[in-house]
Measured scan of single mutants.
Amino acid sequence: MAEQVALSRTQVCGILREELFQGDAFHQSDTHIFIIMGASGDLAKKKIYPTIWWLFRDGLLPENTFIVGYARSRLTVADIRKQSEPFFKATPEEKLKLEDFFARNSYVAGQYDDAASYQRLNSHMNALHLGSQANRLFYLALPPTVYEAVTKNIHESCMSQIGWNRIIVEKPFGRDLQSSDRLSNHISSLFREDQIYRIDHYLGKEMVQNLMVLRFANRIFGPIWNRDNIACVILTFKEPFGTEGRGGYFDEFGIIRDVMQNHLLQMLCLVAMEKPASTNSDDVRDEKVKVLKCISEVQANNVVLGQYVGNPDGEGEATKGYLDDPTVPRGSTTATFAAVVLYVENERWDGVPFILRCGKALNERKAEVRLQFHDVAGDIFHQQCKRNELVIRVQPNEAVYTKMMTKKPGMFFNPEESELDLTYGNRYKNVKLPDAYERLILDVFCGSQMHFVRSDELREAWRIFTPLLHQIELEKPKPIPYIYGSRGPTEADELMKRVGFQYEGTYKWVNP
């Protein structure tokens, strides 16, 4: 592979701008107003304001973009700056750019259920340069409990009458099928589907988006991507930290609602779906819905739930269990780990287990898709061969690698495990991989909904998990304890083995 010439960040961002501006969906010269509902909250200060700053800094926003914060707290732009700027990672050389960014910011205080507050917000936006005809993007960085009041008031008082209007809704989209349907029906009564952007930030990850290209742009994968060759698929999300004093919020939802029903299920769809007619948003989402419709409700015998306990040999936070978090209700049975087996009941995947695993306070930070292939028929190497695996590593250190057998150097035919490896950090030294939120917010500006969740996708996802969630809430089974920093409950490994996964433990990928 030829040595790549190092590029400056300015040059890299210039390439990104060229890609972005050559499309006809990006209205570079139009006025846009980006409204952050819930501007005083954690999500706004840690993710949304920093993301908008990065896009502005790199010249990736339309030229005439204004940012308006809205929340109940009586704040000023200076207050917003004070709480969000520490997350910007701005350099001293960017000081003038930073001043320009905050000059485009404003803030309006108001209630979430008060019509007069929204009329005041609308008047404020109209007073901005060309504000009355601007395109408006409303980001709901809010708890779902206020979605209905907020969307109703936005629709009645704050819509642009000339430009387009788009609304970005953060997960969780309800707690179960019934609450999700209620919320979807409410929002759909106010906005068209092409105006609604239900954001799952995992769909903005580079390697998640790469799944489609790997599958449908490489001839070698087509013939082997089926039940005849693939023994099982494992989708993993692991965090090495616990709730760390923020367990009160987590306890309301648990690990299945927080990660599995959305992030992991979306990745499953991209692995299992048929080739779409095109890369058009609805063509892709149509195929994802077909996959979900082929999955039956989760069966309790295919589920393992766990909850982390303190590690007596650990240090600091590792010595504390979930129930030691003062914000967690006493005696909570909320799971911090889950392993679930699903089956896609169609011709391509009949009988292939899709194993979804996620948890907190585990032994490493990792998100990946792992396809394990069947054993080689007619073994001539005296059971020395391990199964081939194709691994798409989402985070950290984005990579695609194939675990395969090669001859060990020497005189004899002794096979050993090795890999074919594409590590993004080595291959793409001159490429700026956008943060997931950067990519998705740019998608909203461009009107691309491919990486957002459609209402029928959402409904099918909740259909699969709601009976299990209701059973857990009714019966309150005690989750299996696992030690902070471990791989999780051993019962999860036993479940995976029972459905056909072979864990060798003899080879570990190392970032080159």
Rank of each mutant, 00 (worst) to 15 (best):
M1L: 02
A6N: 15
S8T: 15
S8M: 05
R9E: 15
T10E: 14
Q11H: 13
Q11A: 14
Q11L: 05
Q11E: 08
Q11N: 15
V12H: 15
G14S: 15
I15T: 06
L16Q: 09
L16W: 11
L16F: 15
E19S: 15
E19G: 11
F21S: 14
Q22H: 14
Q22A: 13
G23W: 06
D24V: 14
A25Q: 15
A25T: 15
H27R: 15
D30V: 05
H32M: 09
F34P: 02
I36W: 03
G38I: 02
G38C: 01
A39P: 05
D42P: 01
L43Q: 01
A44F: 03
A44C: 07
A44I: 04
A44Q: 00
K45T: 09
K45P: 06
K46V: 04
K47E: 02
I48F: 02
I48M: 05
Y49T: 00
P50H: 01
W53A: 08
L55H: 09
R57A: 08
D58A: 11
D58L: 09
G59Q: 08
G59A: 09
L60Q: 08
N64T: 07
N64K: 13
N64Y: 12
F66P: 09
G69D: 03
G69T: 01
G69S: 07
Y70N: 12
A71Y: 10
A71I: 01
R72D: 02
S73A: 12
S73W: 02
T76G: 11
A78H: 15
D79W: 03
I80P: 01
R81K: 05
R81T: 12
R81G: 06
R81Y: 06
K82L: 08
E85R: 05
F87D: 06
F87W: 15
F88L: 08
F88H: 04
F88W: 04
K89C: 13
K89E: 15
A90S: 10
T91A: 12
E93S: 07
E93D: 10
E94C: 06
E94D: 10
K95Q: 10
K95V: 01
K95Y: 11
L96S: 09
K97S: 11
E99M: 08
E99K: 06
D100C: 12
F101C: 00
F102S: 03
F102N: 03
A103L: 08
R104K: 11
N105H: 10
N105L: 12
N105C: 13
S106P: 00
Y107M: 06
V108Y: 13
G110L: 04
G110Y: 06
G110S: 07
Q111H: 12
D113I: 11
D114Q: 08
A115W: 14
A116G: 10
S117E: 14
S117K: 08
S117L: 07
Y118C: 11
Y118E: 01
Y118K: 00
Q119H: 09
Q119C: 12
R120G: 10
R120F: 11
L121Y: 01
N122L: 15
N122M: 14
S123N: 15
S123F: 11
S123P: 03
H124T: 15
M125P: 02
M125W: 04
N126G: 15
N126Y: 09
A127I: 11
A127W: 05
A127H: 15
L130M: 10
G131V: 11
S132V: 14
S132K: 14
S132E: 12
S132D: 15
Q133I: 13
A134M: 11
A134H: 11
F138Q: 01
L140R: 01
L140N: 07
A141H: 00
P143R: 00
P144I: 01
V146W: 03
Y147S: 00
Y147E: 01
E148I: 11
E148F: 13
A149L: 12
V150Q: 03
T151V: 11
T151K: 04
T151H: 09
H155C: 07
E156W: 11
C158K: 03
C158T: 11
M159F: 11
I162Q: 13
W164P: 13
I167C: 13
I167K: 02
I168G: 12
I168N: 05
V169Y: 01
E170F: 00
P172R: 00
P172C: 03
F173W: 10
G174L: 01
L177D: 15
L177T: 06
Q178A: 07
Q178T: 10
S179C: 04
S180N: 06
S180I: 02
D181M: 11
R182F: 13
R182D: 15
R182C: 15
L183T: 10
S184L: 06
N185H: 10
I187D: 02
I187S: 04
S188E: 12
S189K: 08
S189V: 06
S189A: 13
F191D: 00
R192V: 12
R192H: 13
E193I: 02
I196M: 11
I196P: 00
R198V: 06
I199S: 02
D200N: 00
Y202C: 05
Y202L: 03
M207Y: 02
M207V: 05
M207N: 13
V208L: 11
V208Q: 04
N210D: 11
N210K: 03
N210E: 06
L211E: 02
M212Y: 09
V213F: 10
V213R: 05
L214Q: 11
F216I: 00
F216W: 05
F216P: 00
N218I: 00
N218D: 00
F221N: 05
G222E: 13
G222C: 13
G222Q: 11
I224S: 10
W225E: 03
N226D: 06
R227L: 05
D228S: 06
D228P: 05
N229W: 06
N229A: 04
I230Q: 04
A231W: 04
A231V: 07
C232Y: 05
C232M: 10
V233T: 04
L235I: 11
T236A: 10
T236P: 01
K238I: 04
K238G: 05
P240E: 09
F241N: 15
T243S: 10
E244K: 06
G245H: 12
R246G: 02
G248A: 10
F250W: 06
F250C: 05
D251H: 08
E252D: 13
E252Y: 13
F253R: 00
F253K: 03
F253V: 06
F253A: 12
G254E: 03
G254Q: 05
I255R: 01
I255G: 04
I256D: 00
R257F: 00
R257C: 08
